[in-house]
Deep mutational scan, measured.
Amino acid sequence: MLDDRARMEAAKKEKVEQILAEFQLQEEDLKKVMRRMQKEMDRGLRLETHEEASVKMLPTYVRSTPEGSEVGDFLSLDLGGTNFRVMLVKVGEGEEGQWSVKTKHQMYSIPEDAMTGTAEMLFDYISECISDFLDKHQMKHKKLPLGFTFSFPVRHEDIDKGILLNWTKGFKASGAEGNNVVGLLRDAIKRRGDFEMDVVAMVNDTVATMISCYYEDHQCEVGMIVGTGCNACYMEEMQNVELVEGDEGRMCVNTEWGAFGDSGELDEFLLEYDRLVDESSANPGQQLYEKLIGGKYMGELVRLVLLRLVDENLLFHGEASEQLRTRGAFETRFVSQVESDTGDRKQIYNILSTLGLRPSTTDCDIVRRACESVSTRAAHMCSAGLAGVINRMRESRSEDVMRITVGVDGSVYKLHPSFKERFHASVRRLTPSCEITFIESEEGSGRGAALVSAVACKKACMLGQ
């Protein structure tokens, strides 16, 4: 009897593995994704193909990295998701002549009506938060230079001027797309009239992360975010950046690689679950690469896999709870928690219980395998993109072996128990001629924006502006 049951459990697990095998990517698959990513990057950089390229390769006008001589107080704003952060950054000489960066910050959550109302409502709310922060720190009387981390696709015309191309991540505030974001912020500050600010720089969160990590390690020339969304930036040779005049030196390019796949480059790798996630998203047909990796989508992918296993009578005796059938019910943090389970399955059992399920031991094991399959594919897909960037940098610099540091931020990278190990191992397999160091950014977005502002202020002083 026991043997029969054991055989049935083994057969069930084997069927589960057959279904989950769809998520496995072979090294040849990853090399294919990497080569296609490089081709799209090239198209994004070139003037004649930029418009139709899915990977936009947006110039950021960040050319210099901090040298350690900029000092002063800077205000930093960070808008990239449902939370908005205001930070005071003091850049100065530390002990023994070292450079020191001290920060104080406060988080504000953005109400739904500000995210989806008008641009005026959104930026009025942001300036209200700045006003509140300055009151708390008794700094209303000071006109501070301000660095703005704005983590949406922007076409820069200068370091302090950028046109919002399109909202992502659930934002829909009308009247912002096609307009200068810094102008919208300046107008809102003017409307309030109770404080003055000098907006000197606007950067993407990947750029802010790279600059913040450069402060720790001067070989950091790539910034990457794996959180709600997924994106990367890197220092490109100016001669390859056709959208900006000049051939000397390097400029940081914001790849906006989340949109890779929007022209069909990933079609052969998309599964039924991916198509369902895409169809029910706020932007169907867009940001397809990001939807395979980002935390906004990972939990939902797992939920759809679990429903398939229920329908195949391989999980929960073929019956799903009402909660499990509800879109968004299986949160991405559950994926991390399930994979963090120590082996007694308590954590998995508790999560499934909150979803109205009474799982068996085998159910718990199957749910864990589903989570591992989805998150491992995410790590491997992400590795193909980064390997594409790094191999490109090595080739354009004609280096036999390139040493490089990548600064990384984002909740999936930082909080998932195995993502970074799987990701690092896969990147290294795909970049055999590179020695890569990964560092995690601390308060990256805010500190990085302030350091970019410090560079901009120093330049302005040198130019006598």
Rank of each mutant, 00 (worst) to 15 (best):
R5Q: 11
A6K: 00
K12C: 14
E14V: 11
V16Q: 06
V16A: 12
I19A: 14
A21W: 08
L25C: 10
Q26V: 10
K31Y: 11
K32E: 13
M34A: 07
Q38C: 12
E40R: 04
L47N: 09
L47S: 12
T49D: 12
P59R: 03
R63W: 12
G68E: 13
E70M: 06
E70T: 13
L75T: 09
D78P: 04
N83L: 03
M87G: 06
K90E: 15
K90A: 14
E93Y: 08
Q98D: 06
W99A: 15
K104F: 11
Q106H: 09
M107T: 06
Y108W: 00
I110N: 05
E112G: 11
A119Y: 01
A119P: 00
E120I: 09
F123S: 03
F123P: 00
Y125G: 12
S127D: 01
C129R: 04
I130N: 01
S131C: 08
F133Y: 05
L144S: 11
F150A: 08
S151H: 02
G170F: 01
G175S: 00
E177K: 08
R186V: 01
I189K: 03
G193D: 00
E196D: 15
V200M: 04
D205F: 07
V207A: 06
T209C: 01
M210N: 04
I211A: 15
D217V: 14
Q219N: 04
C220F: 03
C220K: 00
C220W: 00
G229A: 06
A232H: 00
Y234K: 00
E236P: 02
E236F: 00
E237A: 07
N240K: 13
N240H: 14
L243V: 08
L243P: 09
L243H: 11
E245C: 11
G249K: 04
G249I: 05
M251H: 15
D262G: 10
E279N: 15
A282C: 08
A282S: 14
N283A: 12
P284S: 14
L288E: 14
Y289W: 07
E290W: 01
G294C: 04
G295C: 04
G295L: 02
G295V: 01
K296F: 04
G299Y: 01
E300V: 03
L301V: 08
L309K: 04
V310T: 03
N313K: 11
L314F: 05
F316A: 13
R325W: 09
R325K: 13
T326S: 10
R327P: 09
G328C: 05
V338T: 12
K346P: 13
Y349E: 11
I351M: 07
R358M: 14
P359Q: 09
S360L: 12
V367F: 11
A370K: 02
S373E: 13
V374M: 08
S375D: 00
A378V: 02
A378M: 01
S398E: 10
E399Y: 11
M402N: 12
H416R: 05
P417R: 12
V427T: 12
R428C: 10
R428P: 11
E443Q: 15
S445V: 01
V452D: 01
C461A: 11
